[in-house]
């Protein structure tokens, strides 16, 4: 890949990105083009290679093969310059436990060569943005998980980055905090920043991402917009029924234009037309069902299978 053929405004451009740990290949030569602006999702089951890919993009894990440029600069040669313009929200919160909230932000600013006096106003803004203003002098052990995660996001914004990478930003948080974080990420997106996020919450990806790739076993399985992927891979209607296979499969099996998928005791009937499925269900009043539209989780399950990972 010569630089001349590089799309002019790709924030991340990876070709043949590969990572080997000894004999084990974790990322198998993937190509990624992350355009400027919007939110790009990296989806996949546990152990798919998401975090390793992210670590390579940020230069914390040397590539075993391939080429990579971030913000138009070569990685790893320009790592300092790339980091100066990038924000990173790590998977696990790693603030300094000996510092207060505001001291953590001040120290992090110093790592970017910013003087605390010059970022005082920015720190106030960020604390307000993430609703931490009343916690500015709290120690880390006094913060809840949701507060720590919000502080991680505030910290990642201290250098006013144009590119923000978030590794599972809402894992383990309660619904209120997740909604707050989603709102803030959408605001960041609206202000022109580029977001790259990994998640295994499909609702999160559907809400936030403009483009996404699904990776599994170190390879890209599919890519596109959430809506595009749903219409490409899954029938529009989904009927979910709980129950033993013996009582459900005779009712919903073999309907033309539909397919039945069983995961444990849950049966998913994917249908292009709703009418024939409802007609069958009318003849089986003992079955309780829910009807919903197809979502990204259906795509994910179809493409990455149903067996447990890890």
């Amino acid at each position: 890949m010569s630089l001349a053929s590089r799309p002019p405004d790709a924030v991340v451009l990876a070709r043949g990105l590969t990572k080997k740990f000894g004999e084990r290949t974790v990322v198998c030569g993937i190509d990624l083009t992350i355009p400027r602006g919007g939110c790009f999702g990296l989806l996949g089951p546990n152990g798919a290679g998401k975090t390793t890919t992210l670590r390579m993009i940020i230069g914390q894990s040397p590539m075993s093969g391939g080429t990579l440029s971030v913000l138009g600069l070569p990685m790893p040669d320009a790592v300092r310059e790339i980091h100066a313009r990038t924000g990173v929200v790590p998977q696990s919160d790693n603030q300094d436990p000996d510092f207060t909230v505001v001291e953590n932000l001040r120290m992090y600013a110093r790592y970017f060569g910013l003087r605390p006096a010059d970022v005082a106003g920015r720190i106030d803004e960020l604390l307000g943005f993430l609703e931490l203003s009343d916690r500015r002098d709290a120690r880390m052990r006094e913060l809840s998980g949701g507060m720590k995660r919000r502080l991680s996001i505030a910290r990642a914004l201290i250098n006013d980055p144009e590119f923000i990478m978030l590794d599972e930003p809402t894992t383990g948080l309660d619904p209120q905090v997740r909604h707050l974080i989603w709102t803030r990420l959408r605001q960041l997106k609206a202000s022109g920043k580029t977001l790259l996020l990994t998640t295994h919450y499909m609702d999160e990806a559907e809400r936030l991402c403009d483009q996404l790739v699904v990776i599994d076993r170190g390879r890209i399985v599919t890519q596109g917009s959430p809506r595009g992927l749903i219409s490409e891979h899954v029938e529009p209607h989904v009927i979910e029924v709980q129950g033993e296979a013996g009582s459900v499969v005779p009712v919903l099996g073999g309907i033309p234009g539909s397919r039945l998928l069983t995961v444990g005791e849950t049966h998913y009937c994917y249908a292009s037309e709703l009418g024939p499925v409802l007609a069958r269900l009318e003849g089986a009043p003992h079955l309780r069902y829910t009807h919903r539209t197809a979502n990204l989780e259906d795509v994910f399950l179809k493409l990455t299978g149903h067996e447990l990972r890890e």
Binding site: I58, Q60, V79, R80, E81, H83, A84, T86, G87, V88, P90, S92, N94, Q95, D96, P97, Y108, Y111, F112, G113, R155, A156, N159
Partner: peptide, 14 residues
Amino acid sequence: HQQTYDAILATPLT
């Protein structure tokens, strides 16, 4: 335990 260096390695420091 603190992963202080992981946090620092996301900044221009090496």
